[in-house]
Write a protein that binds this DNA or RNA. Sequence first.
DNA 1: TGCCTGATTGCCT
DNA 2: GGCAATCAGGCAA
Length: 194
Amino acid sequence: MEILPASFYRQDTKTVARALLGTLLVHEKAEGTTIGRIVETEAYLGINDEASHAYRGMTRRNAPMFGNPGHAYIYFIYGMYYCINVVTAQSGVGEAILLRALQPVEGISLMEKRRQVLDPVKLCNGPGKLVLAMGITKDANGHNLRQKPLYIAKDKYKVDEKEIGTSTRVGITKAVLLPLRFYIKDSSYVSKHV
DNA sequence: TGCCTGATTGCCT
DNA sequence: GGCAATCAGGCAA
């Protein structure tokens, strides 16, 4: 496994959001290792993006967004779900990428057990679902995604620019029109087919 | 298939 | 006090 270098995350946020497609999210736990191929991402920009948690500046909740690029920002939403983001750009800027869907690669039976679902398509096709399937908890908030047990690595298959689709972001009520959602067009593991 | 709703809680205004 | 980067299930067509 070749873990993505710190320099990868210091690029422009939209560039990283595209480049993350096709990479592998790996979680090594005592109960087993789970791996998912990232097939859908959304970019959340800094203080000019109304839909971003960083829009009103740093608060207790979003502080990790303003921290080190390549670290995780995990937040609690709707009273029952967690979502995981990857911090990008530079420290202090407050930009991050929401991981919205994965194609299960390894540890599928463990994912099925955690999710109480058998259909492989439904295991990780949403931000809340993939966090559950991968066994990620709020303890990983601020974790460096270049370190075990939770990290992002290159896959042997490279995604071509032509395979990437763009759309508006899902589930937000502000800055609705910005084309900041990226996904692998022919993947059946994305959260929404538009 | 697709729209609508309830569940449930931490955080910001 | 109200809302939120969600999800699953129910009901209508």
